[in-house]
Nucleic acid binder design. Sequence first.
DNA 1: CGTCCTGTTGACGATGTTCAAGGGGGGTGG
DNA 2: CCACCCCCCTTGAACATCGTCAACAGGACG
Lengths: 245, 245
Amino acid sequence: MSRNANLTPLPGSCAACAVRPFALFRVIPQARVGEIARIRSGVRLVRAGDAILDSIFTMYAGWAFSWTATPDGRRQVLDFHLPGDLVERSEDAAEVEALTDSSFCILSRERLCAFMGRDPGLAMSYVDGLTRDRARMRERLTSLGRRDAAGRVAHLLLELHGRLLRRGGADARGAAVPLKQAHLADALGLSVEHANRALAALRKDGVATLNKGRLEIMDRTALEDLAGWAGLPPPESLAPQTLAG
Amino acid sequence: MSRNANLTPLPGSCAACAVRPFALFRVIPQARVGEIARIRSGVRLVRAGDAILDSIFTMYAGWAFSWTATPDGRRQVLDFHLPGDLVERSEDAAEVEALTDSSFCILSRERLCAFMGRDPGLAMSYVDGLTRDRARMRERLTSLGRRDAAGRVAHLLLELHGRLLRRGGADARGAAVPLKQAHLADALGLSVEHANRALAALRKDGVATLNKGRLEIMDRTALEDLAGWAGLPPPESLAPQTLAG
DNA sequence: CGTCCTGTTGACGATGTTCAAGGGGGGTGG
DNA sequence: CCACCCCCCTTGAACATCGTCAACAGGACG
């Protein structure tokens, strides 16, 4: 395979950008797309596994992820970045790495800020992204805090499937999900072996499979039950005991 | 004790607001404080344990926290809200509850948005808060994913101490921290009993205590070592193994 | 053909949960 | 003033979940 076979180039103009309907600039009407041209400071194509050093960019093709290393040499994956996502790399905090061969559009923070100062709609779109990020982090926190391994895997698969569905990258039965089991494990606070076992259980029960870069959902109800804590007590049962106000 | 002994009223004017230097409106110079008066839509005093239903507000006195219930009747505490923090309650997602008797200043989202549209500095301040929130959620995620119980407790205590220090609510040796062990447990994904044991270990080793609403830090170095994974291999040791790029 | 990466499985031990019980302090009502 | 109760903290023991260690299989690639 050629070294560049999977590298998807970006279109020359934002007007032709396939991910713009799902991205920061979705609020700029097609007629005004010319105005944002100067916010783009460049494009970049990177290979799977490459570190990404640009400080603010929009994913165009491929997946990336943010992570931090723990002093004992393990990783915590903080978030996955899909086409259309705005990614900000804060100098000191997290690393960003291409998960697959990827291409993205680098922005000038200075010019973006200036434009947002003049266009409240764009600023709102930016804020919207931050708010969504925070909400997703909160959901993950709940996963790591209160779900067991199977629930965490189920929940993450559903989250990714939902995000892909919204941008047309999935159908009801599945999607392209290029995660290795190590990514799952490092995102969910599990060992690779345990993530594997959780995935094996899903496969064995005919719920879902993750194989060769593809997620297949065979039984969405069962998957949701797992993610939402299977075997619930009836909803009208007792209220939370701890911290009862 | 009177039913209102701990309810701290707010000053009538933002000009006299004690938390403004640490809050959203810190960017508005004293001379222009009059302009933001109309963004305030009211104040509220609530008792410990009360649910807070207002959709956007700035904590003035006391602590609050956001949480979600799991279908099996447990809680995940998502974040703690300290004086000066801007809190947004999203209808469907998380509940917000007063942790102590608290008072806060309710904002009008509509007028806040309008003002931010005219004042990019205020918009930046708002964005700054969202970015900080996200960073804090990421740190918590790392805690729940990769730290053991002692490390999680140590890390959260340090986080809270740092946040309090920045707003003058702490000295180097400790701070008022009104958390019950159940709050710690529900924030850190632990059972109350295990959180208790972790806290007991900190106390026994002379590292820190959390007692009667007060955090005392006896050995900050040891606490940081715990939070940063005690017994680290030397920094120049091996790189992360999983997901090696 | 050998090597590396990824996935897989088993055995065992560590960490954390659950269940059960009890203690202390501050309120409230007799 | 005392008795009682409730909330919070604390401890122990049995048990479950998950991590670690070790081994191996299959496929891609050189």
